[in-house]
Design a protein around this nucleic acid. Structure first.
Length: 586
RNA sequence: CGGGCAGUAGCGCAGGGGCUAGCGCGUCUGGUUCGGGACCAGAAGGCCGGAGGUUCAAAUCCUCUCUGCCCGACCA
């Protein structure tokens, strides 16, 4: 491609609001352009890089037996009503009516669509397992897009769906995808880790997220440097140190002005781990049959030295949504904010007790009376019932649930996820197959997603320096940047042609610009191999080759240039392929 | 959805009641340069986000509204 006629404008200054280097360079070098909040155009460079990522996705999905399909973005709402997600997903899904006044949605993911397809295509166990995937546009009306391409509203996603007849079959295809994902990310050059994750709106049980560890990430990952345990903070567990002793008699004490755990501990001279903390939320529940929404107060109790993890709590009570409770709602159930416990509570609420509280003895807790606390409260003796579950937040410094060593935490960007869906969708939509025993059974499904734009954003974040991008050769928009500094265009034209004839992807800077401008742009765009044609080396019949990754410069004879470049391309591709990660799910 | 900030030339910004709205970069013309964002001369380009109001006079003050960014709630 000749730069003199490209649909491109490089920027000297950072766009306002660019908070990360990766995003800044993607805009400045002309990969992407913003149209609205969380809505971007891909310019030629962005499109080419994206296409390379898609090619890797296709190769790796095909490798594990995937078949590419393309499903519609616009869906009739009916199928979303069948699974109930039309009601359970809030404003994040764009909805509209067509001219006949029919309810329509923009499919933000395609479980419903693919299940509707499976209904018509799959009838016998003999066809199973099946794996289909697509690379398609998604629109999710995120309330808060941010950080360039990291969190957007419209994006391209590779979403795959598997169908099988047994859990064992699902386990296998899930493992295949798990492995394929590591190959995909490592072929693009992005370092990722897989972490156990929350299933969120997808439903289902087993799930993993692929995380690119970076401070620009919004997810928190808990990991054990010792044994390798990793999990998203939303589901991470940890070893709770339980203080167990002889149960002592309940005792009410005056604790004026001790509304917080800190104040309480200071006043009574106890440790936070010897207290019990109340957190009140109101959950929204949807009746699966009538689809009616109702709200209910949730009183959650964790030990004073821990915090409630909302995702865990939400799972424990099976709520579709949680919000903080108002004071009146708490009082209506006989509990006193600031001095609350479940002892003496009444009315219709859901009690959730962290297992760390349930198994501890003699905790200090509120007496549900302004200015009073109880000493020596014990679950099972002073109050009982409700749900006992792990609802506490894991933190760095806590003990690893596996090996007991100290946990660490890191920020990460979720670039991919895989879910075992089970029969959540097939059962709701009647997507069945006839099994060997002649019986109709719901298909057992899995789904597998990778955000293509987000992946590019992470790569830009991982590969840059003070001058611009330096994407790996497997995802760079072109392989070679040919920069001509000499007046006689013919020499450059000849080399350009020669490189093209050898099947090399060349960006040819044929613009009438000063050397400084050309070099600055070349650094900014950061193609892996730069060929400079200048009088300095031309005198000796040579041109210079500079590698973006290392800065290494070598001169080659004019007649050898295509050959040398081909070798360098091969070397760089091999370097990445040698590092392809083959990782099995354990 | 709450809290904060901002919309002025293609991009980055200044100007905060007064006469023709500026600067840097970019763009166009001509010339000189030509290995790290060159120089000289000339030029084009703005209903100052939108709608109402106050005023003799509004980019500037007031009200409403739209849009974007940051923090939080939220989110794959």
């Amino acid at each position: 491609m000749r730069m003199s006629h490209m649909f491109l404008r490089t920027l000297r200054e950072a766009p306002s609001g660019a908070d990360s280097k990766g995003y800044e360079y993607l805009v400045r070098s002309g990969f992407i352009s913003q149209l609205g909040a969380g809505i971007f155009s891909l310019l030629p460079f962005g499109t080419r890089s994206t296409e390379k990522i898609k090619k890797i996705l296709r190769e790796e999905m095909d490798r594990i037996g995937g078949e590419e399909i393309e499903m519609p973005v616009v869906n009739p709402a009916d199928i979303w009503k069948e699974t109930g997600r039309y009601y359970s997903i809030d404003k994040e899904m764009a909805r509209f009516k067509d001219r006949m006044n029919r309810d329509m949605v923009l499919a933000m993911t395609n479980e419903e669509t693919v299940t509707a397809l499976a209904r018509t295509v799959i009838d016998s166990y003999k066809k199973l397992p099946l794996l289909v995937y697509q690379i398609q546009t998604k629109f999710r009306d995120d309330p808060r897009p941010r950080a360039g391409l990291i969190r957007v509203r419209e994006f391209t996603m590779k979403d795959g769906y598997s169908f099988d007849r047994s859990q064992e079959g699902l386990d296998k295809i899930y493992r295949d995808n798990y492995k394929a994902y590591f190959r995909i990310f490592s072929r693009t050059g992005l370092p990722v880790i897989a972490v156990a994750s929350d299933t969120g709106m997808m439903g289902g049980k087993v799930a993993h997220e692929y995380m690119y560890l970076s401070p620009i990430g919004e997810d928190t990952i808990i990991m054990c440097p010792e044994c390798g345990y990793t999990a998203n903070k939303q589901v991470a567990t940890f070893k709770k140190e339980i203080v167990k002793g002889e149960m002592k008699p309940l005792e009410k004490v005056k604790t004026p002005e001790a509304k917080t755990i800190d104040e309480l501990c200071a006043f009574l001279s106890v440790k936070p781990s010897e207290t019990c903390k109340a957190v009140f939320m109101v959950g929204t529940f949807i009746d699966e049959k009538t689809e009616e929404e109702s709200e209910k107060l949730i009183a959650a109790f964790v030990r004073g030295d821990m915090d409630v993890e909302e995702a865990k709590l939400s799972h424990a009570v099976k709520a579709s949504e949680l919000r903080p409770a108002h004071e009146e709602e708490i009082r209506a159930c006989g509990m006193t904010p600031g001095f609350a416990s479940a002892i003496g509570a009444k009315g219709d609420f859901i009690l959730v007790v962290d297992d760390g509280v349930a198994s501890s003895t003699n905790l200090v807790a509120g007496a549900n009376e302004e200015g009073y606390h109880y000493l020596n409260t014990n679950y099972g003796r002073d109050y009982e019932g409700g749900i006992v579950a792990d609802i506490a937040s894991a933190k760095a410094g806590y003990k690893c649930p596996v090996c007991g060593k100290e946990l660490a935490s890191s920020k990460g960007v979720e670039v991919g996820n895989i879910f075992q869906l089970g029969t959540r969708y097939s059962a709701a939509m009647g997507a069945t197959f006839q099994d060997e025993d002649g019986k109709e059974k719901p298909l057992i499904m899995g789904c597998y997603g990778i955000g293509v734009g987000r992946l590019l954003a992470c790569l830009a974040e991982e590969y840059n320096d003070e001058n611009g991008l330096k994407l790996p050769i497997t995802v760079a928009p072109y392989q070679v940047h040919l920069v001509s500094l000499v007046k006689d265009q013919q020499i450059a034209e000849d080399i350009y042609q020669k490189l093209l004839d050898n099947g090399i992807e060349v960006l040819y800077d044929d613009r009438k610009e000063s050397p400084g401008v050309k070099f600055a742009d070349a650094d900014l765009i950061g193609l892996p191999i730069r060929i400079t044609i200048g009088n300095r080396s031309l005198k000796e019949g040579k041109v210079e080759v500079k590698l973006r990754s290392t800065g290494e410069v070598t001169s080659y004879k004019l007649e050898d240039i295509a050959e040398e470049v081909l070798q360098e391309i091969e070397r760089e591709v091999k370097e990445i392929n040698d590092k392809v990660v083959e990782k099995e799910l354990v």
